[in-house]
Design a protein around this nucleic acid. Structure first.
Lengths: 228, 228
DNA sequence: TAGAATTGGATAGTTCTACTATCCATTAAT
DNA sequence: ATTAATGGATAGTAGAACTATCCAATTCTA
């Protein structure tokens, strides 16, 4: 197929397809003549993937690129999922004053101990990604203490983790028997793990927001709180 | 205090403070002379808040503005938390073909039935915000079916909701006895609800990503899966 | 009290991201 | 044979979030 058909089938304008090719997000078409290239289903799949990551998961092209680079790599070789998570978590370094840095470091150590002690934690996997995770958690807790509750106790994180574990069970358990089909990029396990994670996010966040709102409403209206 | 001191204390450049005033995110200082204005602690608090929403919660200024507009409004009057959630959820309308729209509508009806049937659901509260929530969930499920698992069953959403409810319990339960102090913007319940929701997000998402990764690793390595 | 520094307000410019448009020599379709 | 489409290059645009410059009025500082 040629670019106009690829554009029509994917719903992405040709100018944008060319831009993605320039940016290396899509391989160039196979050149048949000097200025004729052919595109195939993999190009269409890739465009769909980019759209899902952009529009559904809301990720910037930088993350899309990092994810694409990891796709197709087998599990356990260089940890593709960890690399993708790393790209997602990367956040501009915040510079802290001396006292702030000390506070940060102390809290980070506590957070690390708590997280590493979770029953499902697998040590030493996804090393750098794990470090970034701890950074993010520490940062978020500091801000919560600053803006919401100076006494915010990180023991609460264990319950967050339990809720998250429950969600992961619902999300993954029933998919673990899927059989990867060779040549079918769609059911490649790395792809499934990364994309699943990113596409589940808006879903999970919506439920979390909803639950927080409903609980607030119930508390302020004196309604009963169903047990969890 | 004057603008340079406000800038120094908040760490926000004067040019940015002026920009925020122009944008209506901060009230102008109280004019004492033609070109002298005084700023106080509320300006400092407001700058801190904007920074938390931008840097920790990652929200655009449009959402920051919507949140600020709702702050201070009492619960139950015009539903400030619902209005803030609405701003957060607003997402560019996707135009669907006829068949897609029918598929969307059918799924949305199923999602609505499931969500409205959750034991903690409070009907008719946060009306438009709730509609946007359902839109977002429906959209996310459609994309999951498209990219991950065509048979994705929305019954799973009940488990997501249960996990989210558990997280909301940990997040809110222990704060419900907080006493609002008059004049202290920090413990205003509307503020606590909205800000809490936004600041908890990065924390929760980090745990969800981690749980999904750990579960994937455990499954692929044949490790046991602790019960949730 | 004179001169340097600061202030508020207005306006214009910058950086980054993600596209979108134009041009053109070449190739394909009718 | 003429019209349309293609690939590649280059330039332009839109929006978000700042950042810089100017200037007359004011305030600090010696």
């Amino acid at each position: 197929m040629r670019i106009s058909e690829l554009s029509r089938r994917s719903g992405v304008p040709t100018s944008t397809i060319k831009f993605y090719i320039r940016e290396g997000l899509i391989p160039a078409g196979a050149c048949s003549q000097r200025n004729q290239a052919r595109y195939d289903e993999t190009h269409l799949q890739r465009l769909d993937l980019i759209r899902a990551l952009r529009e559904v998961a809301g990720q910037p092209l930088e993350v899309v690129r990092a994810v694409i680079e990891q796709l197709g790599k087998p599990w356990g070789e260089g940890d593709p999922v960890g690399a993708a998570i790393e790209a997602i978590h990367r956040v501009p370094e915040r510079d802290r004053s001396g006292a702030e840095q000390a506070e940060y470091d102390a809290l980070r150590a506590q957070v690390a101990e708590l997280v590493n002690g979770l029953p499902w934690h697998v040590p030493d996997e996804a090393d750098r990604a794990h470090a970034l995770e701890l950074d993010r958690i520490t940062d978020a807790v500091l801000q919560l203490r600053r803006y919401i509750d100076p006494d915010f106790d990180i023991a609460v994180l264990r319950d967050f983790a339990a809720g998250a574990w429950r969600i992961s069970e619902a999300a993954i358990e029933r998919n673990e028997d899927r059989v990867p089909m060779p040549g079918d990029d769609l059911i490649d396990p790395t792809r499934t793990a990364i994309l699943g994670m990113l596409l589940l996010e808006p879903l999970v966040m919506t439920f979390v927001r909803s639950a927080l709102t409903m609980r607030s409403i119930r508390i302020s209206n004196g309604l009963p709180l169903p047990p969890s």
